[in-house]
Amino acid sequence: MEYLAQIVPVMAEGLKVTVSLFCVVLVLSIPGGMILAMIRMSKLRVLARIVAIYVYIMRGTPLMLQLLFIYYGLPFIPYIGIQFDDATAAIVAFVMNYAAYLCEVFRGGIQSIPKGQYEGAKVLGFTYFQTMRKIIIPQVIKCVLPPLANETINLLKDTSLVYVLAMNDILRIMRGIVQRDFDTSAFFVAGVFYLLMTFVLTRVFSYLEKRYAVYDE
């Protein structure tokens, strides 16, 4: 008990790192994913193709590889090589990866809206902007909520990958404690931290899903 009281505050510091990284990445990758989805579905053929390839690469290679590449590999690339500090490298890698996943989520959502909805709005005199705001986006939100919840929870757990950089997130602090004290309690504390966070996220999303569940189809 005394031991727990000693390690929990230390690990809570790691929690801050994890939560900040999670929030920053989420806030950046949602609009990023939307923009990618719009380009991917636009008539700008070349750009759409580039986004498709980008998404393919991001989803087809391990996030860990992307993270290591951006932190350790990028500085060695001639001309464009830059050295990010660890927090920046983590944010860049996560946003690039999650924007690609969310691009597909949003694209699926937008494509699930039948053409008739646009036509129904058009013949009533709606402008394109009004159609998107009042007719299309509310329906897209409803159908992307479940996959968005999935990706969000994945992101929360994936943030633990930053322990390969020198970032003191929950997992890295946990490892330090375990190696120092030869005691496994820290594993359980970390597990409980993650469970608490996923619990909160699940509740937020189920609240949102309920709000949008008033109609079906």
Binding site: G120, L124, K134
Partner: peptide
């Protein structure tokens, strides 16, 4: 295929265009 707006009630379906467009 009707093309009603599924996320709006019957009444909202009727009200939306006069409200937004006019």
């Amino acid at each position: 295929q009707f093309n009603l707006f599924p996320h709006m009630t019957v009444l909202e379906n009727i009200l939306i265009a006069p409200k937004m467009v006019k």
